[in-house]
């Protein structure tokens, strides 16, 4: 059974490319960490985490973009695996960002980060 996704993202490319196919909640001003917290709220309410929040080997203090898919359906219980993964991911992201802040990049580099985030979530959901 494949659950229908809702994509939580601060990546404009994910929004523009996937909003015709899936539900996309785009938070333009959100940081990477905000998107992870947002995903945790969904998990606490009973949504299932569908994609790993730290997808890609790009570290959370290297890229400003993040797309995470959770189930559209809300269940009556909290999925413990989803909870464990999102909590551990937030912990790791906070640690790395505290250790070294995400750099300010040129537009070209930002485009590349944006493309990889989008491509990984697109492939994961295909």
């Amino acid at each position: 059974m494949k659950l229908k996704p809702v994509i939580l993202t601060n990546n404009p490319l994910t929004k523009s490319s996937l909003e015709n196919k899936y539900s996309v909640l785009y938070k333009k001003e959100a940081s990477l960490l905000d998107i992870l917290m947002f995903a945790r709220d969904y998990v606490h309410k009973g949504h299932r985490l569908l994609t790993h929040p730290l997808m890609g080997s790009i570290k959370p203090n290297q890229t400003p973009f993040k797309s995470v898919a959770v189930s559209k359906e809300c269940f009556n219980d909290v999925d413990l695996l989803s909870l464990e993964i999102i909590e551990e991911s937030i912990l790791k992201a906070e640690q790395l960002i505290k250790s070294k802040k995400t750099p300010v990049y040129t537009d070209k580099v930002l485009e590349d980060f944006s493309l990889i985030d989008f491509d990984l979530i697109k492939n994961a959901l295909n």
């Binding site: 464990e84 551990e88 991911s89 912990l91 790791k92 640690q95 790395l96 250790s99 070294k100």
Partner: peptide
Amino acid sequence: EYAGRDGASQSLADS
């Protein structure tokens, strides 16, 4: 490991 520059943080994103 990605344990921070001082090596003191948790090393992996899962355990």
